[in-house]
Simulated assay, not measured.
Amino acid sequence: MKIAHIEVIEAAIPFDDGGSGLGITPGRWDSLEFVLVRVETDTGLVGWGECFAYSCRAAVAAAARGMVAPLLQGRELPATPEALTLELQRRLHLFGRYGITMFAISGFDIALWDIAAKSQDKPLHALLGGARRSEMPAYASLVRYGDAELVQKYCREAVAQGYRYIKLHEIEPDILRAGRAASGPGIGLSVDVNCAWSTEQARERIAVLREVDAMWVEEPVFPPEDIRTQAQLNSTFPLGAGENACTRHEFARMLEAGAVRFAQPSVIKVGGVTEFVAVAALAEAQGVSVMPHSPYFGPGYFATLQLGAGLAGEPLFEHLYVKPAADLAEGGTPLPVRGVVRIPQVPGHGFVPDAQVLARYRI
């Protein structure tokens, strides 16, 4: 079975989060940007992948088209794509092991795993060693509002919808307290700072995190690769990190340093399914929980569910708590219901785009 055709597709779907869209990304964030990878074999099988593209769509698409696709066109496909993905990493390492290059490789790896599972008529999780669960509890991952009233509004809304876990992206103590007050004492609360605090602020605000009974604090300081400081903070309060880490090697350093209690690989950033599986194995060996990073609505969402099926412990699924203008998935994305999301049991990872939606929002 050979790769017969590759297509890299760009799209953007607006969304509403009830806020200003300001606070984390370089500009106003009000659309979901996609770089989709479509790989078709000479037998007619089609695999879909997704490269991380928020605020960097054009650059990632250029890397996917100009750097990765030419290395795969016409290639014979092995039973599973690990060796082929690692070959891509070796041949492209001069252009950066992390960031844009790895985002592009991630999308192709996801598509190749989709093909591999479809060729054996199995859900992806079955190809990866089987499932520990058929559904995952999800947490409502709120955007950063910077407004106590909005945080309270959406925390109450999420709880009313049945979520038992919520993540705040707030950085001010009073807003964190407002989030806890609105959620109530029985809701698991985590806090993602997105590297906004200085080391001194992080140390000071551990008291606030304890006060609001946070499950973990995510990436409290800049830069995200400062694992020495993360390890110091992790010794005093549970820390999560990894959405900005690429490959198993960055995670190995993080784990060896004792820098996290919750490892958070992102399948469309880390190097795809191949690297995610390797990271999960390292974390399990170290007794560290994996909490996947997945604020996505394309193949990355579906691939994360498949990977979550086999994770050790009690992983949670991150659901970005926004309202897209359209659902990109044919037949609909399996959204959380009463705080729980079901894992697709079809061959592959389960994502196929809705042709009409893709045509409307394609760039």
Rank of each mutant, 00 (worst) to 15 (best):
Gln89Asp: 08
Gln120Val: 13
Ile110Ala: 00
Gln89Met: 15
Leu88Asn: 00
Glu87Ser: 13
Ser141Cys: 10
Arg144Glu: 05
Glu87Tyr: 10
Met102Leu: 15
Gly146Trp: 08
Ala148Glu: 13
Leu142Cys: 09
Leu72Glu: 03
Asp114Arg: 02
Trp113Lys: 05
Ile110Glu: 01
Gly129Arg: 13
Gly96Trp: 11
His93Asn: 15
Leu72His: 13
Leu84His: 05
Gly130Ser: 09
Gly146Asn: 06
Phe108Met: 03
Val151Ser: 01
Pro123Ala: 11
Asp109Arg: 04
Thr101Tyr: 02
Gln89Ile: 13
Glu76Gly: 04
Gly66Ile: 09
Ala140Glu: 03
Val143Ala: 10
Ser119Val: 01
Leu94Pro: 00
Arg133Asp: 02
Tyr98Trp: 13
Leu77Trp: 13
Pro78Glu: 14
Arg90Met: 10
Phe95Asp: 06
Pro70Met: 09
Arg65Gln: 14
Trp113His: 14
Ala117His: 00
Leu86Ser: 03
His125Leu: 01
Gln73Gly: 07
Arg97Glu: 10
Val143Gly: 00
Leu92Glu: 05
Leu71Pro: 01
Gly66Phe: 04
Ala111Tyr: 06
Asp109Ser: 07
Met67Cys: 11
Lys118Leu: 05
Arg132Asn: 12
Ala63Asn: 06
Tyr139Ile: 10
Pro78Ser: 12
Pro137Tyr: 04
Pro70Cys: 09
Lys122Val: 14
Gly146Cys: 10
Asp147His: 12
Tyr145Val: 06
Ile100His: 02
Asp121Gly: 13
Glu82Leu: 04
Arg144Asn: 09
Arg90Ile: 03
Ala140Gly: 06
Ser134Phe: 08
Ala116Ser: 14
Gly130Tyr: 09
Leu124His: 00
Asp109Gln: 08
Ile105Ser: 01
Phe103Val: 06
Arg97Pro: 01
Tyr145His: 04
Leu71Gln: 13
Thr80Leu: 03
Met102Ser: 08
Leu92Tyr: 06
Glu87Phe: 11
Ser141Tyr: 05
Ser106Phe: 07
Gly129Cys: 11
Asp147Cys: 13
Val151Gln: 00
Tyr145Asp: 01
Leu94Tyr: 14
Phe108Ala: 02
Arg75Asp: 01
Glu87Asn: 12
Ala116Phe: 03
Ile100Pro: 00
Gly130Thr: 09
Ala111Gly: 07
Gly66His: 13
Ala116Ile: 09
Gln89Leu: 11
Glu87Arg: 15
Val151Cys: 05
His125Glu: 06
Pro81Gln: 11
Lys122Met: 15
Ala79Cys: 07
Ala131Lys: 09
Arg75Ile: 02
Asp121Ser: 15
Leu94Gly: 15
Leu127Phe: 07
Trp113Ala: 04
Gln120Asn: 04
His93Ile: 12
Gly146Lys: 01
Ala83Tyr: 02
Arg133Lys: 12
Gly96His: 10
Glu76Cys: 06
Ala117Val: 08
Leu142Tyr: 08
Ala63His: 10
Ala140Ile: 12
Gln89Asn: 14
Gly146Tyr: 07
Lys122Pro: 01
Tyr98Arg: 15
Leu92Arg: 02
Asp147Thr: 06
Leu127Pro: 00
Gly107Asn: 03
Ser141Leu: 04
Gly66Leu: 12
Gly129Gln: 12
Leu128Phe: 07
Gly96Phe: 11
Ser134Leu: 12
Leu112Ile: 09
Leu72Trp: 07
Leu77Gly: 02
Gln73Ser: 14
Leu88His: 05
Arg65Asn: 07
Ala69Leu: 09
Thr85Cys: 14
Thr80Asp: 01
Ala79Thr: 15
Pro70Ala: 08
Pro137Ile: 05
Lys118His: 04
Ile115Ser: 01
